[in-house]
Design a protein around this nucleic acid. Structure first.
Lengths: 197, 197
DNA sequence: CAAAATGGTAAGTAACACTTACTCACAAAG
DNA sequence: CTTTGTGAGTAAGTGTTACTTACCATTTTG
C-alpha cells in the first residue's frame, strides 16, 4: 500500500532528519539507503513507503527547507520601499539563508541540478517563484525609473542570481567563512553602480 | 597490471569517446559502465585499466575539453589592450565556449562540483588558473584606474563568473538557445556601467 | 464488526561499480 | 631463438546498492 501524504508519521520524519544529517557530511551519491535507514532506526523498505525513490527524498527535503527560505525572503522584501532596496535585501537575505542552512544550499546549488527529474519537482516550482519575484521587482524598477531603461531584466536577474550563487559555492564546498555584509554590499555596489571608473 | 599513462592506446580513446557521446544524452549517474563499454566495443574491465573509477573517467574527459577552452580564451585575451576589453572578451568567449561545447559545460557546471574528489583533479587546477587570470586582470584594472578603486577584486570576479555560469545553465539544462552577443554585452553593460539610473 | 487504510517489517532481486585472474602479441635482452 | 617482461585486452566473477514484494499489526471508518 502506498502512502497518500495525508499524515506525517514519525517514520517519515525520522527518515528526513536522518537524510539531512548525512547530507551535512557527504554528497548525495555517497549516502546509501542502508545508512539512511540505519541512522533513522527504521528498515530500508519504509523509505519507499514515503518516497518514490532516493531522489524524491532529496527533493522533499529540499522542498521543506525552501518553504522557510521563501517565507523569510518575502517577509523581508515587504519592509523595503524602493526596488533597489528590495533587490539589496534579496541579495543579503539569500546569502544569509544559504549561509545559515548549508544542507539546503548544498542540495539546491550542487545536487539537484544535474538530474532532469528535479525540474518536475515541487521544489523547482518554488525556485521559479523566487526567480519570478526578482524579475518583477526589476521590471518595476525599470518602469519607475529607478533602473536604467536600456538594461534587460532577464540579464540583470542572471547577474544577480549568478553572483549570489557563485558567492556561496566556496563556502558550501570548502567550508570557508563568508562575510555576508561585505559580500552583499560589494555585489550590490557593482551591480547597481558599475565597476568602471 | 595497471596502466602507467605513457601511451594512448585505441581502447582508451574509444572509452572516452563513448563516454562523451553518452554524456550528451543523459546525466553522469544514469550512464552505466556496461553502456560505456558496450558503446565503445570493449569489455567493462578495460575501463578500469585506464581509469581509477567512473569519476576519474569524467575528470579526464573534462580535462581534455578544458585544455581547448583555456587555449582559446588566452589566445583571445592577448588581442585586447585595456582590462575592460579583456574582461569583455572573457565574458564573450566563455559563453561561446560553453555554448559550443555542451558536454564540457555540462560536466563542469553540473556534474563535478558535488564530489570533493574533483577538487584534487587536474581539471580543477585548470579552473583555478582560468580563475586566477581573471583576478589578475581585475587587479591590474584597479591599479591603472580603469576600474573603481573601491571595488573588491574577488567580489567582481564572483559577479562575472556567476553571471557567465548562470547564463549557461538554462541552455545546458533545457537546451534553450542563447544569443551570446546580446547576453555578453548585456552582462558587461551591467557589470561595468551599473544598473542604477 | 468487517473492511479498508495506515505504519511498519523482513526477505528478497536485478543491476551496478569495480576486481581478479587470465590470455595474447610482441619487443628487447641474453 | 628462446626467455622474460610488458602493454592491450578479455572473461568471469563479487559485494553493494537501490528498489520490490509480501507480509503483519494497529487504527480508522462505513
Amino acid at each position: 500500500m502506498k502512502h497518500k501524504g495525508k499524515t506525517n508519521p514519525p517514520g517519515r520524519i525520522k527518515i528526513m532528519k536522518s537524510f539531512s544529517f548525512l547530507m551535512a557530511q557527504k554528497d548525495f551519491h555517497s549516502i546509501t539507503t542502508a545508512q539512511i535507514a540505519g541512522n533513522a532506526k527504521v528498515t530500508e523498505g519504509l523509505i519507499y513507503k514515503y518516497f518514490k525513490d532516493k531522489k524524491d527524498l532529496l527533493y522533499q527535503v529540499l522542498n521543506e527547507h525552501f518553504l522557510e527560505f521563501q517565507a523569510k525572503i518575502e517577509n523581508q522584501i515587504a519592509n523595503e520601499k524602493t526596488c533597489i532596496e528590495q533587490l539589496e535585501v534579496i541579495i543579503f537575505s539569500s546569502l544569509e539563508s544559504y549561509a545559515d542552512n548549508r544542507i539546503f544550499s548544498k542540495i539546491l546549488l550542487l545536487e539537484v541540478r544535474n538530474s532532469l527529474g528535479f525540474f518536475d519537482s515541487g521544489a523547482y516550482k518554488m525556485v521559479r517563484k523566487y526567480s519570478r519575484t526578482i524579475l518583477e521587482i526589476i521590471e518595476k524598477g525599470i518602469k519607475n525609473g529607478e533602473l536604467k531603461p536600456d538594461i534587460d531584466a532577464f540579464t540583470l536577474r542572471k547577474v544577480i542570481l549568478g553572483a549570489i550563487e557563485h558567492a556561496c559555492l566556496g563556502e558550501i564546498i570548502f567550508g570557508r567563512e563568508l562575510d555576508i555584509d561585505e559580500v552583499s554590499t560589494g555585489i550590490a555596489n557593482i551591480v547597481f553602480n558599475g565597476a568602471k571608473a
